[in-house]
Nucleic acid binder design. Sequence first.
DNA 1: TTTAATATATGATATTTACATATATGTGCA
DNA 2: TGCACATATATGTAAATATCATATATTAAA
Lengths: 132, 132
Amino acid sequence: MIFTYMCKTCGCSFRSRDFGNIERFVEPCILLLLSQKPSHGYSLMEDLEHKCGEKVDIGNLYRTLRRMEMDGWVKSDWSKNESGPDRRTYTITQEGLEFLKSAVSSLTHTDELIHRLMEGYKEAFRKEQASV
Amino acid sequence: MIFTYMCKTCGCSFRSRDFGNIERFVEPCILLLLSQKPSHGYSLMEDLEHKCGEKVDIGNLYRTLRRMEMDGWVKSDWSKNESGPDRRTYTITQEGLEFLKSAVSSLTHTDELIHRLMEGYKEAFRKEQASV
DNA sequence: TTTAATATATGATATTTACATATATGTGCA
DNA sequence: TGCACATATATGTAAATATCATATATTAAA
């Protein structure tokens, strides 16, 4: 999800990610899915979209999973697949469960910051909203 | 706000930003403050912490303000200061007000994704929470 | 005169994301 | 057989963003 800006000084257009993205938000989403049952990258891609509302770049997802294994939050093993290429199946670890818990806690704080901004916005633009 | 990870394969430690950060979240916070009255970088730094709960790196803040001016969301003028160095005073523009509105809208979506994750977490770990 | 607070700015580096591309297996079909 | 397509994993490159350090200058206070 990207959108385009126009530079005011030289007129060139440039691209940026859509506003509101939480850095590495996909990681607790992956961990929550894996806490229910082990899975592999391609399947997680579909579940992330349908169950978590997260459209992810598949290349990024595979790199993220390898990094999460480096971090000790998941571990992986190859599993045979009769109806297609073999799969690298990921399982959540105790450390992964602990990070998931701390991530939910951090997101509570993020949520508070969002609400603080939205409340301030509502208060500042109350009259304009009333007139609409 | 940063925290430290330990690499599981080589034992090296490395640093990352704290979890839960929203990319460029400081920008709508700045715009909301400027929608109330024009201000300058150093003063915004203090207001961002006390009114918005956002501790910002001052170097990053000045660079962000210059970028926001490039984007057309604010404009700046130098103003004399008898009790210290002169200040670059920023004023919000109509485009800035429009971006603030769209940012609040995007953050509503971000908020939904956070709540979706937190609800899923609560449901998955209900028993553990009950036993604590 | 030296220190601290105020005030703005940039250089270097690390991290994360976006987009493109490479590789390989199994299924269906013409 | 040859081809397209879905499945499946992975990496190369570049852009965007954040972190940390540092530079510069003014005013006031110790």
